[in-house]
Design a protein around this nucleic acid. Structure first.
Length: 254
DNA sequence: GCGACAG
DNA sequence: ATCTTGTCGC
């Protein structure tokens, strides 16, 4: 059993990590949020990135989670795993991790390759309590995790230029789009993420620090991982894989 | 109280 | 997230 698989087992087996009540979940987030750490991320040193995602059945009776490891240089799949399970926590905006992490952790535990960085489809510190799913995963396993979301949950920001690579900062505050960014970048503003245009003329993605990475490196990494499509490749692969896996399991069971 | 609300 | 066909545009 790999070192990470052991950590995963410990995390999943600790009842403290999986409250049933949303109220307790929020309290748990407040405790774990203090453990989030921002560290420099040397993007050039990153070789393998694991993309994570979960797919749900319409009736909420089943789900599949996938972890796909890609080589940053070639963007080729190095290893991929998918597992099926059932939801154990309802979808509540802001408490995403309690719903998706159990199956995601199960998938990660089945991986035999060890990635340098993990990439979640969701937020890290760009969250009301600075504890989105990317931070949640990072703290539970104490590993580097980056968050890349497709829409906004929290924070104000302006719209970046239309060229690929242009970006604007997201600062703490109620979710809101403002005309210009200068006011946002002012001294004292708490930057919690970055709106990044990964593809010209297409809706941007929202990058934020999960754990043990920095925003600059996270954005650079996400941009490298999105040479052709809006969503970074590892997440696209994971999204496709868990979707197919869920349907295959459904067909197999009947 | 009202509106917002990752996947 | 998921359910779904066609359709507008580069």
């Amino acid at each position: 059993m790999s070192e990470i698989a052991e950590r995963v087992a410990r995390v999943l087996d600790d009842p403290e990590n999986w409250p049933d009540d949303p109220k307790e979940a929020v309290a748990r987030q407040r405790v774990l949020a203090d453990r989030v750490r921002v560290e420099p991320l040397d993007v050039d040193a990153v070789r393998l990135v694991a993309g994570l995602d979960v797919s749900y059945a319409t009736d909420n009776s089943a789900l599949s989670a996938a972890a796909v490891i890609l080589d940053v240089q070639t963007l080729e799949v190095v290893e991929s795993v998918a597992i099926s399970s059932e939801p154990t926590f309802p979808y509540i905006s802001g408490l995403f991790g309690f719903r998706e992490l159990p199956p995601v952790l199960e998938a990660l535990g089945a991986l035999r390759t060890t990635p340098d960085v993990y990439l979640c489809d969701g937020f890290g510190m760009a969250h009301p309590r600075r504890f989105g799913i990317a931070s949640h995963l990072g703290v539970l396993l104490d590993l580097p995790v980056v968050g890349s979301a497709k829409s906004v949950l929290y924070g104000k920001h302006s719209v970046p230029g239309n060229e690929r690579g242009s970006w604007t900062p997201m600062v703490a505050g109620r979710s809101e789009v403002v005309p210009d960014s200068p006011a946002l970048a002012r001294e004292g503003a708490e930057v919690i993420g970055r709106v990044l245009r990964t593809r010209a003329g297409v809706k941007p993605v929202y990058v934020s620090v999960g754990h043990r990475v920095d925003l600059e490196g996270s954005a650079e990494l996400v941009l490298r991982l999105s040479p052709k499509y809006r969503v970074p490749e590892p997440v696209r692969h994971a999204d496709r894989l868990c979707g197919e896996h869920r349907k295959a399991v459904l067909a197999a069971k009947g």
